[in-house]
Amino acid sequence: MSGPVLRERLTARLDGDYVVFLIGMRINKPWLVHKWWPVVSAMPRMQRELQSQPDSGLLHAETWFSRTLIQVQYWRSMEQLMAYAKNREAQHLPAWAAFNKAIGTDGSVGIWHETYAVRPGSSESVYVNMPAFGLGRAGELVPVKGRLASAAQRMAAGK
């Protein structure tokens, strides 16, 4: 879901700590559709589940599709992300078990994730001629002016 292009210079504001979670897959053997399609189709199910639960801690997610798929997720806390990952009644654990059973380390499909705990004053952002995007959708977009005019000032303002 996109939106109108916002022509002004904006930055994202998200008060307090938050988590950036990058997750994705790489299709190593495109002809083995039966291997990679279940992995591709698992993510939308998890996404719908999380979006239907506002208290899950997921703030926003953006997804890109190519040979390597990537989703960037913004979470309110590491505890909420880990609670979802370990929840036996959620979509994640069955998808992970199915991946390990069908693919494991056979090389047909790669999966990966990276997790970053972000503290106030340790990130900054700028958006120009963009619809609301990324951290700007997880938090609030504010004009880049005054004490937010430069990257250094935005970093200092968050401390």
Rank of each mutant, 00 (worst) to 15 (best):
V20D: 04
R67Q: 04
D15F: 11
G134P: 10
L6M: 10
Y84C: 01
V142K: 10
M155E: 11
V144W: 03
S52M: 11
W31E: 05
G3L: 01
P94M: 05
S122F: 11
A85R: 08
G139T: 07
R154P: 09
L22R: 12
Q71D: 12
L81N: 13
K145Q: 09
M82N: 07
G16P: 10
W112I: 00
G3V: 13
V142T: 06
R119D: 01
E140T: 11
W96K: 12
A42W: 07
L69I: 13
V5P: 00
N28D: 12
H92Y: 04
L141A: 04
V40E: 01
H113V: 00
V144T: 04
V40W: 02
V33E: 08
H60A: 15
R48Y: 02
S56N: 03
A61R: 10
G158T: 03
T63L: 07
L59I: 08
R154N: 01
L141N: 00
D15C: 06
I111G: 03
Q51D: 13
N87S: 08
M130K: 05
A95Q: 01
R48I: 05
Q73R: 09
R67A: 14
V144D: 00
L135P: 04
L14I: 00
L69V: 14
R9W: 06
K29E: 14
F65I: 12
N87E: 04
R88D: 11
W112Y: 13
R48G: 08
V72C: 03
R13Y: 13
G16Y: 02
G16E: 09
K159Y: 01
S125K: 05
K159H: 14
L50A: 01
R48T: 09
V72L: 13
K159N: 06
N87A: 15
K145M: 01
H92Q: 06
S2T: 00
A117I: 00
A102S: 15
L6P: 01
R13L: 12
E89F: 12
D106Y: 05
I27N: 10
V144P: 08
A156R: 15
I111C: 01
D15R: 14
E89C: 07
P4W: 07
L50Q: 14
G24W: 03
L148H: 04
R137F: 05
A152R: 12
L148V: 00
V72P: 02
P4V: 05
V142W: 11
R7I: 15
W31D: 11
I23C: 03
Q153E: 09
I103M: 01
Q71C: 15
Q47W: 14
R137H: 14
E79A: 06
A138M: 08
W36M: 04
L148P: 04
W75S: 09
Q73P: 04
S122L: 12
L135Q: 10
G104R: 02
I23M: 08
Q71M: 09
N129C: 15
G121D: 04
S52T: 09
V20G: 03
I103K: 07
E62L: 03
Q53P: 03
V128E: 12
S41Q: 14
V126G: 15
M130F: 02
R13A: 04
R147P: 13
E62R: 03
I103L: 06
E8R: 02
A138F: 11
P120S: 12
F133S: 12
A102R: 14
K101A: 11
V72R: 07
H113N: 07
A61V: 08
R119V: 05
L135C: 12
Y116F: 13
R88F: 07
R26T: 15
F21D: 06
V118H: 05
